Amino acid sequence: MTKILALDASTDACSVALSLNGETTHIFELAAKSHTQRLLPMVDEILRAANCTLHDLDAIAFGRGPGSFTGLRICIGIVQGLAFGANLPVIPVSTLQAMAQGFVAQNQNADLPLLVALDARMDEIYWGLFSADNIPNLLGTEHVMKPAKVGEQHLIANLEKQFIAIGPGWHYADLQNIVPEVLIQDVHPDARFMLPIALDAFDKGETQSIFDAQPVYLRDSVSWQKRQRIRTQSL
Results as ranks from 00 to 15, higher is better:
residue 3 K to S: 11
residue 4 I to K: 00
residue 5 L to T: 00
residue 7 L to A: 07
residue 8 D to H: 08
residue 9 A to K: 08
residue 10 S to I: 07
residue 13 A to K: 09
residue 13 A to H: 10
residue 15 S to K: 10
residue 16 V to A: 12
residue 21 N to T: 09
residue 21 N to Q: 11
residue 23 E to I: 05
residue 23 E to H: 06
residue 24 T to M: 11
residue 25 T to F: 03
residue 29 E to G: 09
residue 32 A to E: 14
residue 35 H to C: 03
residue 39 L to I: 12
residue 42 M to F: 04
residue 43 V to P: 02
residue 44 D to A: 11
residue 48 R to T: 15
residue 51 N to G: 14
residue 54 L to A: 13
residue 55 H to R: 12
residue 56 D to W: 04
residue 59 A to S: 03
residue 64 R to K: 14
residue 66 P to M: 06
residue 66 P to G: 07
residue 69 F to C: 05
residue 70 T to R: 09
residue 74 I to P: 00
residue 74 I to T: 00
residue 78 I to V: 09
residue 79 V to N: 03
residue 80 Q to G: 15
residue 80 Q to D: 15
residue 81 G to E: 13
residue 86 A to N: 15
residue 90 V to I: 12
residue 91 I to Y: 00
residue 93 V to C: 01
residue 103 F to P: 04
residue 104 V to F: 03
residue 108 Q to Y: 05
residue 109 N to M: 09
residue 111 D to T: 12
residue 118 L to N: 08
residue 119 D to S: 07
residue 119 D to P: 06
residue 120 A to P: 02
residue 128 G to D: 06
residue 131 S to R: 07
residue 131 S to Y: 06
residue 132 A to W: 04
residue 133 D to L: 10
residue 144 V to S: 08
residue 148 A to W: 04
residue 149 K to A: 14
residue 154 H to F: 08
residue 156 I to E: 01
residue 157 A to R: 12
residue 158 N to P: 10
residue 158 N to D: 15
residue 158 N to W: 05
residue 167 G to W: 04
residue 167 G to V: 07
residue 168 P to G: 11
residue 169 G to H: 02
residue 172 Y to E: 07
residue 173 A to F: 07
residue 174 D to L: 09
residue 174 D to P: 12
residue 175 L to D: 12
residue 177 N to W: 09
residue 181 E to V: 10
residue 181 E to N: 14
residue 182 V to L: 10
residue 183 L to R: 05
residue 186 D to P: 03
residue 186 D to W: 01
residue 187 V to M: 02
residue 188 H to T: 10
residue 191 A to L: 04
residue 192 R to H: 13
residue 195 L to Q: 05
residue 197 I to K: 02
residue 199 L to D: 01
residue 201 A to Q: 02
residue 202 F to K: 00
residue 209 S to L: 06
residue 210 I to V: 12
residue 211 F to S: 14
residue 212 D to K: 11
residue 213 A to V: 13
residue 214 Q to S: 14
residue 214 Q to E: 15
residue 214 Q to D: 14
residue 220 D to T: 04
residue 222 V to N: 07
residue 223 S to D: 14
residue 223 S to M: 10
residue 225 Q to N: 15
residue 226 K to A: 11
residue 231 R to K: 15
residue 234 S to Q: 12
